[in-house]
Design a protein around this nucleic acid. Structure first.
Length: 359
DNA sequence: ACTCTGAATCTAGACGGG
DNA sequence: TGATTCAGAGT
DNA sequence: CCCGTCC
């Protein structure tokens, strides 16, 4: 996901950044500096790459594929008749992450000394397993499904950019379940009903209705039974709606077990010359920037021995605005239940910096 | 009058100099 | 892809 | 904070 957004966002003149041989470097630029920033804040990241998607997702992927193709047509058309802005707009929509992009990012991480794993299927599911096993403090993702996959903690907006507008959000599954007053099985059913990548949404059922239905009936079986026996025919379950299969994916996703040798992660010193060779010689990055970045990595691998974020996070007071916001979309609901109890989190460094500024 | 869904729209990174 | 905003149907 | 640059 990050690779995708780097490809979309890291641009100049409507074009992705490129080496002098015309190869895209946006993904490397994004990965390199974001990772550097994260490490510099005392965090030891572990990257999880997506594997082959589960079969249930093929319907959704087909839709995305169709949308991409449509965007490509519009892109071509815009190149002929449209304005530069239109061309750029459609260009962003046609972005696809290739195997090469992924491989280059892995090569970069190896040179940086940052561990990673390629998940058998969904990265979010693998993240959840690793977080659950204590291999990492939390799973960082924008995808709420991470909680559905049973990650005890989900971090959103984990970027340490200065210009970050959104605060880092730390969502605890236990507090979320507590806030919703549900067990995990019900939570999974709720998430499925809210709409997930594996199933078509049920028309007319949005976040509020979904929550009410699960509350009233307890399980998806009962909800489906209720809907189908409702004389008023208010809702209609789609033709092909294998919710048990979706549930099974959330309960038992195909993942690498945390005690697998592949999950014996090591954070190592960067290969400085390797980084220079790759980023400078092959991709045309500025050598001074790369070297000083590598130096930072080297320094941090020695000092940052903390394997947990705990010491780095500190709750900050919640604003009234945020509290009032508690009524919205589906995943927000999940966050909402949690927001009531949990506060947004910031890094120690940041908090200190802010406190310093304020004083 | 209020609640809710769903369609439309916009946007997306990181950094630093001025 | 997600977040935000808005129109209109439903209650 | 705004806006250009990174490659």
């Amino acid at each position: 996901m990050s690779i995708y957004s780097f490809l979309v966002a890291v641009r100049s003149d409507g074009q992705q950044l490129m080496s002098d041989t015309g190869e895209t470097t946006s993904h490397l630029m994004g990965m390199f500096y974001r990772t550097l920033r994260i490490v510099d804040n005392g965090i030891k990241p572990l990257y999880v790459f997506d594997g082959a998607p589960p079969k249930l997702k093929s319907g959704e992927l087909a839709k995305r594929f169709a949308r991409k193709n449509e965007a490509s047509e519009q892109h071509e058309e815009a190149k002929e008749t449209g304005t530069a802005e239109e061309v750029e707009k459609f260009s962003r929509r046609t972005v696809r992450v290739t195997r090469e992009h992924n491989e280059e990012c892995r090569r970069l991480l190896r040179l940086m000394g940052i561990p990673f794993i390629v998940a058998p299927t969904e990265a979010e599911a693998q993240c959840a397993v690793l977080a659950r096993a204590g291999k990492v403090y939390a799973a960082a993702s924008e995808d709420m499904d991470t909680l559905t996959f049973d990650s005890p903690i989900l971090l959103r907006h984990l970027t340490f950019s200065e210009q970050r507008k959104e605060p880092i959000q730390e969502i605890h599954l236990d507090k979320t379940l507590e806030g919703l007053n549900m067990d995990r099985k019900q939570f999974i059913d709720l998430c499925i009903l809210l709409g997930c990548d594996y199933l078509d949404p049920v028309p007319k059922i949005g976040p509020n209705t979904a929550l009410k239905l699960i509350r009233d009936h307890g399980t998806l079986e009962k909800v489906v039974e209720f809907i189908e026996s409702d004389p008023k025919k208010k809702y209609a379950i789609p033709e092909d709606w294998p919710y048990q299969d979706a549930r099974e994916l959330f309960l038992h996703p195909d993942v690498r077990s945390a005690d697998d040798p592949e999950c014996d992660f090591k954070w190592e010193a960067p290969d400085v010359e390797g980084l220079v060779q790759f980023l400078v010689n092959e991709k045309g990055f500025n050598e001074d920037r790369v070297r000083s970045a590598a130096q930072k990595l080297q320094k941090n691998v020695k000092t940052a021995q903390q394997s947990r974020l705990e010491g780095f996070f500190k709750a900050i007071p919640k604003t009234e605005d945020q509290k009032k916001d508690l009524k919205r979309k589906h995943e927000e609901k999940v966050a909402d239940a949690k927001k009531k109890k949990k506060e947004d989190a910031k890094t120690k460094k940041e908090t200190k910096a802010k406190a310093h500024l304020n004083s």
